[in-house]
Design a binder for these strands. Structure first.
Lengths: 350, 350
DNA sequence: TTGAAAGCGATACCAA
DNA sequence: TTGGTATCGCTTTCAA
């Protein structure tokens, strides 16, 4: 806790009897030094407990080795493997990832963009495509590579990898419809623009199929959690007790629905079929296991990070394909398995 | 995508026809400027889309407005409200939180400490008290406030707030013992030092009670998840089918155990009682609901952040109490409710 | 209220 | 292989 000044590069230089440049090189380009000097400097560095000031080095070299990542949430497991994938690519390349959790708020996102850009990152990775005008303007004006993930758009800021959530919602309904369901409910939480698109896809599918949705949709303004799944499902049941299938905007709600069924003595999938979204780990562990729409979160993270690496390390050229649709697949498990159906099976889309 | 240089403070100054200092003041101390000039500068800032270079400003002012936070995981919901609490205190004060996820690896932690210190944070918040010698040395040498959370120790680096995990494990066993259980199993994942302490507490309690634990402990080297709960519980059942209670090192394993019971047609809590750890949200939603040891994660985050704020903003004095034990409480829910028992009840410790 | 000059801690470029 | 010098973008005295 001594608050004596931290050692600087010059301190090391003086102590080792060399010039500051030499110390800098001992760290960045050790091969440029004679073995003798290198060793002397390295010893001094350790002795003084010297840690390079990244701010100063970034300022001088105009290479910050920082990539900014904005996620809307950390609560659910969704952004975990995504973040992990990004770091697994970037960290070994010596790049630090600055993460900002904006909790599904575009205002917070705007502030986060400004803050992160203040660190002069070499690239930015955004979740979703729904940034405000100002956010987009700042991002564009920064002149650095920007990757929007998780969703697809016709007008990407720069690069884009994601999936069509409306199509996913649409497909989920048709999947259930093909199994004979007609009263298909949808549980969802407001606030997440991608969830809204899934909802829109659900609605369109129901419309196309000529199925009424009155009383079949439950929507909460709060952040979703498992308990909310039970509440929303109960709301739907109160409106229409004959619901035969439920499509939820995420797996937490699906699990909550499953629990509510258990509580009420309703059998899954015989009385009610359930399809979640994201295919989190617990979907394969519950009783019955939960069918879910699987999304390629890791792939999106990896692609985003690798594209960035190529741009800032390599030629500076953008990848051939600037927009990628990774699609989705419906994983069939116990919560929708029909009496005659088989074990596990994934239906791939897009 | 234009890669023309980003606007600097001097650019703004030139454009507005004032000196750089004036622009700086328009941002940091607007009240020092005449209304007229302030407006002119602010207009120019917006026109040029100027975003201050935080690196340069931090370097010049030697105030980075950064606090480094190291967490061992983001997968489970455990570190989410903790991080949220920290940011809720620090962000409004204009302090950025740099988070590093080290995935329960002390080597990664060591690297993360070095990296984060490279950013010259004004304080560091560490999860746990099990840093390597070198990590501790770097932390001490940095001269900045360091808060260790989540666990307690006699030799804190600086400040410390947490709970006694050994005592928690001990209490969980006695809690189950008081309900008549004798064959109490423990499921846990290696790698987390706090989980190891809970395990030790379990072992001590069983020893003190004269209860043998052979075949009652299942331990996995991998990161735990819900599915693993089922696997570990199955392992225990294979060794000893007469297990009457299970204490797990976290809630994921508890949920997995619950599912395994459902799969095997074992009734909870009649055939098997379950106590988890952390009291995550889903514990209150499952069927039956899960009893769990509740930990004050938010409180720990808040205290850590507030203490830091006081030190770096205020007098620089450490808080009166440099070590805080926040204790824990056992939340009784359906998975341990005895036939005669009442609704909800929390037992508070420490 | 405004500005000029001197650094913050490192790196890049050019010499030696 | 080693070192001097200017500079990165901003803030902090100190003066006007």
């Amino acid at each position: 806790m001594n608050s004596k000044r931290r050692a600087t590069l010059s301190d090391v230089a003086r102590e080792a009897g060399v010039s500051p440049v030499t110390v800098s090189r001992a760290i960045r380009h050790p091969e440029m030094l004679s073995a003798q000097l290198r060793e002397r400097v390295e010893t001094t560095i350790r002795a003084l407990n010297y840690i390079p000031n990244h701010l100063a080095s970034a300022l001088a070299s105009t290479r910050t080795q920082i990539v900014g990542v904005i996620v809307p949430s950390l609560t659910n497991g969704v952004f975990d493997d995504y973040l992990g994938a990004i770091q697994d690519v970037l960290n070994p390349a010596g790049i630090q990832v600055l993460v900002s959790n904006v909790r599904y708020s575009v205002e917070q996102e705007e502030r986060a963009v400004e803050t992160l850009l203040g660190y002069h990152p070499e690239a930015m990775i955004m979740a979703g495509v729904d940034q405000t005008e100002r956010s987009q303007q700042m991002l564009r004006g920064s002149g650095i590579p920007v990757v929007q993930t998780m969703d697809v758009t016709d007008r990407p800021i720069d690069l884009n990898i994601g999936l069509d959530h409306s199509a996913a919602g649409y497909a989920a309904v048709h999947y259930l419809h093909a199994q004979g369901h007609r009263k298909i409910a949808h549980l969802t939480a407001r606030g997440d623009p991608r969830a809204r698109r899934r909802h829109a896809g659900y609605q369109k599918a129901m419309d196309d199929l000529g199925l009424p949705t009155a009383g079949l949709v439950a929507l909460s303004p709060r952040t979703s959690d498992v308990a909310m799944g039970g509440t929303l499902f109960s709301d739907v049941l109160a409106e229409d007790p004959n619901v035969s299938a439920v499509f939820t905007c995420n797996d937490d709600l699906a699990l909550g629905t499953l629990f509510e069924c258990q509580r009420r003595g309703m059998r899954v999938p015989d009385d009610v079929a359930i399809v979640g979204f994201n295919d989190l780990e617990f979907c394969g562990a519950s009783v019955p296991t939960l069918s879910s729409v699987s999304t390629e979160r890791q792939k999106m993270g990896t692609w985003a990070a690798q594209s960035i690496l190529e741009i800032i390390r390599g030629s500076g050229k953008r990848p051939a394909q600037r927009s990628v649709d990774v699609g989705f697949s419906i994983i069939t498990r116990g919560s929708t398995r029909l009496p005659a159906a088989t074990t596990r099976d994934a239906k791939k889309f897009s």
